[in-house]
Write a protein that binds this DNA or RNA. Structure first.
Length: 513
RNA sequence: GGGUCGCUAGCUCAGCGGUAGAGCACUCGGCUUUUAACCGAUUGGUCCUGGGUUCGAAUCCCAGGCGACCCA
């Protein structure tokens, strides 16, 4: 533990006084022969189960059943010979009914002043173990009538305000443990995140998908358009990149004969931070041989609906005040049709980039000059004018080939690929396509990327010769998809910021001075 | 990258040129039915940092730090 001056945002003296008072209590406990940092406690119950089991117990009634539980004191209401604490464990809250006569009777052998010591030596924030019976108080609060207690961990620092809680968002992220202690919705979000992640894993495994881990450190970062983080391997004397997608390695596994593979894993992109972007985030990518993008749109509908039902119990959700119905099937619309509906512009009719640029002038788009193809311009129109309007779940399909370097050409429509992106609440949640299996075409697409990279495009990737060699050995027709788990969790937990669903989001360190 | 807003006690906030405040928490005293307990008393501050203006700066100005939101 560093000195107090290292603790950010906390000026010294007052906090030091609180801390000093608690350190004195640590000493007092030791003087009494009690360990303020105990080793264990036999726990036989949790608060949520007790609340459920005794939900019908009438006010004033007691049950002579012994329970033992442990948790953090989050509130104290102390009288002369009676006290009420609120004890919080992972499952919830319960009141402790702490009566002097009862406690001193049961603890006489170990501490004849146990009740006085309880009043003097415990604080909000301490971890307490208790044993006792069940009683619903005359005012109707289900309680554990404590016979014995033990300090399990003495907290030296105070918790945030019991009523206002912790609202400073920077502090919530920097000291997430405080957020978790005082904000039940934060706990609930991470619980749901875990259910969603395991739900995805179970769903895929139930359908024969095998989870295989692929490298994070790569000599060529591919599979997406994004700036990678760069690192260096000392003994190999080479630059390495943190992966920006799991795509190209999972597809190598399909070449190798695994017909259904997936990976849930951390992805790293060296890009801006916002309410929708964290430099490291979690995706699930999955690949199924002999399937196409129609199969995966069906699968995606079923997967997301299954998760919503299992985790939330409903397909009708609310995101930031907007009602969203996840009931399949979802709208499927081509990018060309959607742009035509919104702008009246039919991008099939533009034979040259110049003609397309002239046509979009009235839309006042940003970055038109950087667009080097009609397909890219079409995508810009979508992203800048339409994306945020796709509130109900919508599959945007059949993207231009120029923005889809790993997708198989559409079987009947020239210039577009068999690709879909899922949008909900105005945000991209998933991206999938019939995988390009033609190594000649794939080499051509890579070379176009490499040319852009050579021209200074930091998001363009180079030619991955190793992957091309794999493709030349033959990859079966395959569909692949990636889902942004963070954004899916945001959607299903009604979280406005990606930082609300990442336990420890990236933050700039606070300045030391 | 641009703009707007914020940063004052452990927490939540007020104060906006003239002695740094409130509620809760903490400390002490009282209290056997509280649940934001109550009653009484006492504490607690590098007003984010550094410059500047001024007789005087938490307050006005400049620069920086961190954050939030919006735009790109």
């Amino acid at each position: 533990m560093s000195s107090d001056s290292n603790r950010p945002g906390q000026s010294a003296s007052s906090l030091d006084e609180i801390r000093a008072a608690r350190l004195q209590k640590v000493d007092d406990l030791k003087q009494l022969g009690l360990n303020p940092f105990a080793y264990r406690w036999d726990v036989t119950a949790n608060t949520a189960d007790l609340q459920a089991t005794y939900a019908d117990l009438a006010a004033g009634e007691e049950v002579e059943v012994e329970v033992a539980l442990a948790g953090r004191i989050v509130a104290r209401r102390v009288f002369g010979k009676l006290a009420f604490f609120s004890l919080q464990d992972e499952s919830g809250l319960i009141q402790l009914y702490l009566e002097k006569a009862t406690i001193q009777e049961h603890m006489a052998a170990t501490d004849e002043n146990a009740f006085e010591h309880l009043k003097q030596l415990t604080d909000v924030g301490d971890i307490l173990g208790v044993r006792g019976t069940i009683k619903r108080t005359e005012k109707g609060e289900l309680s554990v009538k404590v016979q014995e207690y033990a300090m399990l961990t003495k907290a030296l620092l105070p918790l945030p305000d019991k009523w206002h809680g912790l609202t400073d968002v920077a502090k919530r992220y920097r000291q997430r443990y405080l957020d978790l202690i005082v904000n039940p919705t934060a706990r609930d979000t991470f619980r749901k995140r875990a259910l969603i992640t395991t739900g995805i894993r179970r769903y895929l495994e139930d359908r024969g998908f095998l989870e295989i881990e692929t490298p994070v450190l790569q000599s060529e970062a591919g599979g997406a358009e994004a700036r990678p983080f760069t690192t260096y391997h000392n003994t190999l004397e080479m630059d390495l990149y943190l992966r920006i997608a799991t795509e190209l390695h999972l597809k190598r596994l399909v070449v190798g004969g695994f017909e259904r593979v997936f990976e849930i894993g951390r992805i790293f992109r060296n890009e801006g931070v916002s309410t929708r972007h964290n430099p490291e985030f979690t995706s699930v990518e999955f690949y199924q041989a002999y399937a196409d993008y129609y199969d995966f749109m069906d699968l995606t509908e079923d997967l997301v609906a299954t998760l919503a039902k299992d985790v939330l119990g409903t397909l009708k959700i609310t995101y930031q005040g907007i009602d969203i119905d996840l009931t399949p099937p979802w709208t499927r619309v081509t990018m060309h049709d959607l742009v035509r509906e919104h702008t009246g512009l039919d991008f099939h009719q533009f034979s040259t980039l110049e003609a397309a640029k002239a046509a979009v002038q009235d839309l006042k788009l940003h970055g038109v000059e950087d667009c080097d193809s009609v397909g890219k311009l079409l995508n810009e129109v979508f992203e800048q004018k339409i994306e945020t309007t796709l509130i109900q779940p919508t599959f945007l399909i059949d993207h231009p080939v120029e923005i889809s370097p790993l997708s198989k050409p559409h079987r009947s429509k020239p210039g577009v690929v068999e690709r879909f992106e899922l949008f909900v609440a105005g945000r991209e949640i998933a991206n999938g396509f019939s995988e390009l299996t033609d190594p000649i075409d794939q080499r051509h697409r890579f070379e176009l990327q490499a040319a852009r990279k050579a021209a200074g495009d930091l998001e363009a990737t180079g030619v991955d010769e190793d992957f091309l060699t794999a493709l030349e050995h033959g990859m079966p027709p395959t569909c692949g998809e990636g889902i942004g788990i963070d954004r899916l969790v945001m959607l299903l937990t009604d979280s406005p910021s990606i930082r609300d669903v990442i336990a420890f989001p990236l933050l700039k360190p606070e300045r030391e001075d």
